[in-house]
Simulated scan of single mutants.
Amino acid sequence: MDREQIRTYAAAVNAAGVPVVEVGHGNGIGASSLQVGRSRPNDDEMLSTAREALTHSRLATLMLPGWATTADLRNAVHHGVDVVRVAAHCTEASVTERHLSAIRELGAEAQGVLLMSHMATPDELAGQCARMVGYGAQAVCIFDSAGHFLPADVTARIAAITTAVDVPVAFHGHQNLGMAVANSIAAVQAGARTIDACARGFGAGAGNTPLEVFVAVLERYGHHTGIDLRSLAIAADLAEQTLMPAPPTIDSTSLASGLAGVFSGFKKPVLAAAAHEGVDPWDLFFALGRRRVIAGQEDLIPDAARSLAVQGATR
């Protein structure tokens, strides 16, 4: 995206009353690189552009330890970021300690995020969230990064976490099995107070919880968000027209990703590796699932594809 795209969309959701708008590279601040893709504007340009447009909404950004540094955090807060979310694999909350503490010292709201949360039990997630709260997290969030959950899975995890911590709990869904809205409603009913969502579900693989649909469903349930739904629908139309070549859909590879419990963002590298080695992407997703590959291990995708090709040649 360029700065004008960011400015236009930020202004639209600000006008609709969306309370928090997260801006940045898909892997967070400091992540623009050849390995995971370069963003067109740099972090400073993205954040300052969004900050100018967000006259009412709070500005948030994401960071992953290993990509971003304390200097990146300081720079983000300098450019007006109100909320910084620090993300780690669902069993590795310990890597967030230094960054959560630094965010608090900088005066921004610190939130802890656990990725690939289907790979941990409800009790394990609750324990990891409690650790992040101990490090200074003022809210905690679990990501269904593979779009693997069903509503009962979400209910069990959110209920366990809300029992274990005394800060707001959030949920981030993916649409691989078509369950993102249902899972997000289950999270709300189990005690979550913040839900991640994107216009038209814009996101990796099959996409995220579609923001305008989720707000409409919340209204039907009697949960009034303070967001103007008609203005939000206009913002969603704008997003489809200006931010994406086409809205994300649940295709066969996204479905395989959700069933196998593999990170949704692996879709493109899986398709590339499968084509290079002459193997079926469906088989490759399930091979990666058996290896319990997680986000950040993109280098294992070609290896798994080669192994499948060898297996096929020796049959």
Results as ranks from 00 to 15, higher is better:
R193Q: 15
I195A: 02
A50R: 06
A304K: 07
T253F: 08
A182F: 03
P168S: 04
T162P: 15
W282N: 15
I142L: 05
V133E: 00
A305V: 08
T96I: 07
L232D: 02
G26K: 09
V217L: 08
V215A: 08
R292S: 13
A15V: 05
A273G: 09
G28V: 07
E277W: 12
Q311W: 06
V21C: 07
L271S: 08
K268P: 14
T91P: 15
A146Q: 06
P248D: 14
A50N: 11
A182C: 09
E22K: 04
G226C: 06
C129E: 00
H223T: 10
R220D: 10
G37F: 04
P65L: 03
H89L: 10
G258T: 05
F286L: 07
V270G: 03
V140Y: 00
S307E: 15
G226Q: 06
V154S: 03
A164Y: 05
V84M: 08
T249F: 09
L300D: 13
A146T: 12
R98Y: 01
R290P: 14
A10H: 01
F263R: 01
R3H: 05
G203H: 09
L284P: 07
E277M: 13
A295F: 07
W282S: 10
V36T: 08
V113S: 08
Q175V: 04
A152L: 10
L125I: 10
R292C: 13
A146V: 13
A130M: 01
A272V: 14
F263L: 06
A60I: 06
Q128G: 02
P41G: 03
V165Y: 00
F285M: 15
A15Q: 09
Q297N: 11
L115D: 13
D153A: 00
V83A: 00
V217Y: 04
S307T: 15
